[in-house]
Protein backbone atom coordinates (compact mmCIF):
# COMPACT_ATOMS: atom_id res chain seq x y z
CA UNK A 1 0.00 0.00 0.00
CA UNK A 2 1.31 3.49 -0.76
CA UNK A 3 2.00 6.13 1.89
CA UNK A 4 -1.07 8.17 0.97
CA UNK A 5 -3.29 5.14 1.37
CA UNK A 6 -1.77 4.29 4.75
CA UNK A 7 -2.35 7.78 6.08
CA UNK A 8 -5.89 7.96 4.70
CA UNK A 9 -6.64 4.54 6.15
CA UNK A 10 -5.43 5.48 9.62
CA UNK A 11 -7.09 8.86 9.82
CA UNK A 12 -10.44 8.11 8.22
CA UNK A 13 -11.24 5.05 6.10
CA UNK A 14 -10.04 2.51 8.64
CA UNK A 15 -10.03 4.68 11.77
CA UNK A 16 -9.43 2.63 14.94
CA UNK A 17 -12.56 3.88 16.68
CA UNK A 18 -14.86 5.07 13.91
CA UNK A 19 -14.31 2.22 11.45
CA UNK A 20 -12.60 -0.73 13.17
CA UNK A 21 -14.43 -0.05 16.43
CA UNK A 22 -11.47 -1.33 18.41
CA UNK A 23 -10.20 0.02 21.72
CA UNK A 24 -13.66 1.09 22.84
CA UNK A 25 -12.82 0.39 26.49
CA UNK A 26 -10.16 3.10 26.80
CA UNK A 27 -12.11 5.27 24.36
CA UNK A 28 -15.20 5.30 26.57
CA UNK A 29 -13.30 5.44 29.84
CA UNK A 30 -11.15 8.51 29.27
CA UNK A 31 -13.14 10.71 26.89
CA UNK A 32 -14.88 12.68 29.62
CA UNK A 33 -13.03 15.76 28.36
CA UNK A 34 -11.15 16.84 25.27
CA UNK A 35 -7.90 17.07 27.23
CA UNK A 36 -8.16 13.50 28.49
CA UNK A 37 -8.92 12.19 25.02
CA UNK A 38 -5.93 14.04 23.60
CA UNK A 39 -3.60 12.73 26.33
CA UNK A 40 -4.69 9.13 25.86
CA UNK A 41 -4.43 9.47 22.09
CA UNK A 42 -0.89 10.87 22.14
CA UNK A 43 0.35 8.26 24.63
CA UNK A 44 -1.16 5.51 22.49
CA UNK A 45 0.37 6.94 19.31
CA UNK A 46 3.84 6.78 20.85
CA UNK A 47 3.44 3.16 21.92
CA UNK A 48 1.83 2.19 18.61
CA UNK A 49 4.72 3.69 16.65
CA UNK A 50 7.41 1.84 18.61
CA UNK A 51 5.53 -1.46 18.73
CA UNK A 52 4.88 -1.36 14.96
CA UNK A 53 8.56 -0.71 14.26
CA UNK A 54 9.69 -3.54 16.56
CA UNK A 55 7.20 -6.01 15.11
CA UNK A 56 8.20 -5.11 11.54
CA UNK A 57 11.87 -5.61 12.48
CA UNK A 58 11.42 -9.10 13.88
CA UNK A 59 8.63 -10.32 11.58
CA UNK A 60 10.90 -12.63 9.55
CA UNK A 61 12.19 -14.43 12.61
CA UNK A 62 8.84 -15.05 14.28
CA UNK A 63 7.08 -18.15 13.09
CA UNK A 64 3.38 -17.63 12.41
CA UNK A 65 2.35 -20.21 15.02
CA UNK A 66 3.80 -18.31 17.99
CA UNK A 67 3.43 -14.74 16.70
CA UNK A 68 0.56 -13.75 19.02
CA UNK A 69 2.37 -14.55 22.31
CA UNK A 70 5.53 -12.90 20.96
CA UNK A 71 3.62 -9.70 20.10
CA UNK A 72 1.80 -9.69 23.44
CA UNK A 73 5.05 -10.03 25.39
CA UNK A 74 6.65 -7.33 23.26
CA UNK A 75 3.83 -4.81 23.72
CA UNK A 76 3.46 -5.49 27.45
CA UNK A 77 7.21 -5.02 27.95
CA UNK A 78 7.18 -1.83 25.95
CA UNK A 79 4.30 -0.28 27.88
CA UNK A 80 5.85 -1.24 31.22
CA UNK A 81 9.16 0.35 30.21
CA UNK A 82 7.40 3.54 29.09
CA UNK A 83 5.56 3.58 32.42
CA UNK A 84 8.81 3.17 34.41
CA UNK A 85 10.73 5.77 32.40
CA UNK A 86 7.96 8.38 32.62
CA UNK A 87 7.55 7.75 36.34
CA UNK A 88 11.27 8.15 36.96
CA UNK A 89 12.31 11.03 34.75
CA UNK A 90 9.16 12.84 33.68
CA UNK A 91 7.29 12.55 36.93
CA UNK A 92 5.02 15.56 36.42
CA UNK A 93 3.85 14.26 33.06
CA UNK A 94 3.45 10.82 34.60
CA UNK A 95 1.03 12.18 37.18
CA UNK A 96 -1.18 13.39 34.33
CA UNK A 97 -0.73 10.45 31.95
CA UNK A 98 -0.18 7.67 34.49
CA UNK A 99 -3.73 6.45 34.28
CA UNK A 100 -3.66 6.29 30.49
CA UNK A 101 -0.40 4.37 30.25
CA UNK A 102 -1.68 1.43 32.25
CA UNK A 103 -4.76 1.39 30.00
CA UNK A 104 -2.65 1.17 26.83
CA UNK A 105 -1.70 -2.43 27.71
CA UNK A 106 -5.30 -3.51 27.20
CA UNK A 107 -5.68 -1.50 23.99
CA UNK A 108 -6.46 -4.19 21.43
CA UNK A 109 -5.76 -1.75 18.59
CA UNK A 110 -2.01 -2.05 19.21
CA UNK A 111 -2.01 -5.84 18.93
CA UNK A 112 -4.43 -5.44 16.03
CA UNK A 113 -2.01 -3.26 14.05
CA UNK A 114 0.93 -5.55 14.90
CA UNK A 115 -1.02 -8.51 13.59
CA UNK A 116 -2.80 -6.95 10.62
CA UNK A 117 -0.17 -4.59 9.31
CA UNK A 118 3.28 -4.46 10.90
CA UNK A 119 3.88 -8.22 10.71
CA UNK A 120 3.47 -8.05 6.91
CA UNK A 121 5.19 -4.74 6.12
CA UNK A 122 8.66 -3.21 5.93
CA UNK A 123 9.77 -1.01 8.83
CA UNK A 124 9.05 2.36 7.21
CA UNK A 125 5.52 1.44 6.21
CA UNK A 126 4.84 0.02 9.65
CA UNK A 127 6.13 3.21 11.31
CA UNK A 128 3.92 5.35 9.08
CA UNK A 129 0.96 3.11 9.82
CA UNK A 130 1.63 3.44 13.57
CA UNK A 131 1.64 7.22 13.34
CA UNK A 132 -1.43 7.39 11.09
CA UNK A 133 -3.46 4.95 13.18
CA UNK A 134 -2.35 6.68 16.37
CA UNK A 135 -3.31 10.12 15.09
CA UNK A 136 -6.63 8.74 13.87
CA UNK A 137 -7.23 7.36 17.37
CA UNK A 138 -6.20 10.70 18.89
CA UNK A 139 -8.58 12.53 16.54
CA UNK A 140 -11.48 10.22 17.42
CA UNK A 141 -10.86 10.44 21.17
CA UNK A 142 -10.46 14.21 21.13
CA UNK A 143 -13.67 14.71 19.15
CA UNK A 144 -15.69 12.40 21.41
CA UNK A 145 -14.13 14.03 24.47
CA UNK A 146 -14.88 17.56 23.26
CA UNK A 147 -18.52 16.77 22.51
CA UNK A 148 -19.03 15.06 25.86
CA UNK A 149 -17.25 17.88 27.67
CA UNK A 150 -19.30 20.56 25.91
CA UNK A 151 -22.63 18.86 26.63
CA UNK A 152 -21.63 17.55 30.05
CA UNK A 153 -19.92 20.54 31.62
CA UNK A 154 -20.07 23.40 29.10
CA UNK A 155 -16.30 23.76 28.64
CA UNK A 156 -13.72 22.87 25.99
CA UNK A 157 -10.20 21.56 26.72
CA UNK A 158 -10.53 22.24 30.46
CA UNK A 159 -7.17 21.74 32.25
CA UNK A 160 -5.29 21.48 28.96
CA UNK A 161 -2.40 23.34 30.59
CA UNK A 162 -1.94 20.48 33.07
CA UNK A 163 -1.31 18.11 30.16
CA UNK A 164 0.46 20.28 27.58
CA UNK A 165 2.08 22.93 29.75
CA UNK A 166 1.07 26.45 30.78
CA UNK A 167 1.58 27.91 27.28
CA UNK A 168 -1.50 25.97 26.14
CA UNK A 169 -3.79 27.61 28.68
CA UNK A 170 -5.41 29.57 25.81
CA UNK A 171 -7.11 26.35 24.67
CA UNK A 172 -9.23 26.28 27.81
CA UNK A 173 -12.57 27.86 27.04
CA UNK A 174 -15.80 28.01 28.96
CA UNK A 175 -18.45 27.95 26.25
CA UNK A 176 -21.49 28.09 28.47
CA UNK A 177 -20.85 29.91 31.77
CA UNK A 178 -22.79 28.78 34.86
CA UNK A 179 -23.89 25.67 33.00
CA UNK A 180 -25.55 23.08 35.24
CA UNK A 181 -24.17 20.22 33.17
CA UNK A 182 -25.75 17.05 31.88
CA UNK A 183 -24.38 14.37 34.16
CA UNK A 184 -25.18 11.54 31.75
CA UNK A 185 -22.80 12.86 29.09
CA UNK A 186 -19.87 12.60 31.50
CA UNK A 187 -20.84 9.08 32.56
CA UNK A 188 -20.20 6.05 30.28
CA UNK A 189 -23.69 6.03 28.62
CA UNK A 190 -22.97 9.50 27.27
CA UNK A 191 -19.84 8.15 25.62
CA UNK A 192 -21.80 5.46 23.80
CA UNK A 193 -24.46 7.96 22.72
CA UNK A 194 -21.87 10.34 21.27
CA UNK A 195 -20.01 7.49 19.58
CA UNK A 196 -23.24 6.18 18.07
CA UNK A 197 -24.20 9.56 16.64
CA UNK A 198 -20.69 10.09 15.26
CA UNK A 199 -20.65 6.63 13.66
CA UNK A 200 -23.98 7.33 11.99
CA UNK A 201 -22.66 10.70 10.82
CA UNK A 202 -19.56 9.09 9.31
CA UNK A 203 -21.72 6.54 7.48
CA UNK A 204 -23.91 9.28 5.99
CA UNK A 205 -20.87 11.30 4.97
CA UNK A 206 -19.12 8.31 3.38
CA UNK A 207 -22.31 7.33 1.54
CA UNK A 208 -22.72 10.86 0.17
CA UNK A 209 -19.10 10.98 -1.01
CA UNK A 210 -19.45 7.57 -2.65
CA UNK A 211 -22.69 8.59 -4.35
CA UNK A 212 -21.14 11.77 -5.72
CA UNK A 213 -18.10 9.84 -6.96
CA UNK A 214 -20.23 7.32 -8.83
CA UNK A 215 -22.29 10.15 -10.33
CA UNK A 216 -19.13 11.87 -11.52
CA UNK A 217 -17.81 8.61 -12.92
CA UNK A 218 -21.02 8.13 -14.87
CA UNK A 219 -20.86 11.64 -16.37
CA UNK A 220 -17.20 11.11 -17.29
CA UNK A 221 -18.14 7.90 -19.00
CA UNK A 222 -21.03 9.40 -20.96
CA UNK A 223 -18.93 12.34 -22.21
CA UNK A 224 -16.22 9.96 -23.33
CA UNK A 225 -18.55 7.79 -25.30
CA UNK A 226 -20.40 10.70 -26.81
Amino acid sequence: MNARGIVRDGLWDNNVVFAQMLALCPAMAVTTSGTNGLGMGLATTAVLLVSNILVALIRDFVSPQVRIPVFVVLIATLVTLVDLVLNAWLHDLYKVLGLFIALIVVNCAILGRAEAFASKSPVLGAALDGIAMGLGFTFALTVIGLIRELLGSGTLFAQASLLLGPQFAFLETTVIPNYGGVLMMVLPPGGFLVLGVLLAGKRVLDARVAARKSRLAKTDFSTETA
Binding site: T32, S33, N36, S153, A158, Q159, L162, G181, V186, L187
Partner: peptide, 11 residues
Protein backbone atom coordinates in the same frame (compact mmCIF):
# COMPACT_ATOMS: atom_id res chain seq x y z
CA UNK B 1 -16.56 11.49 38.33
CA UNK B 2 -14.40 13.83 36.23
CA UNK B 3 -16.05 17.21 35.83
CA UNK B 4 -18.30 16.72 38.86
CA UNK B 5 -16.77 15.10 41.93
CA UNK B 6 -13.22 16.06 41.07
CA UNK B 7 -13.79 19.63 42.26
CA UNK B 8 -12.39 18.35 45.57
CA UNK B 9 -8.93 18.59 43.97
CA UNK B 10 -7.13 21.85 44.66
CA UNK B 11 -6.09 21.98 40.99
Amino acid sequence: TPGLGDKIEIA
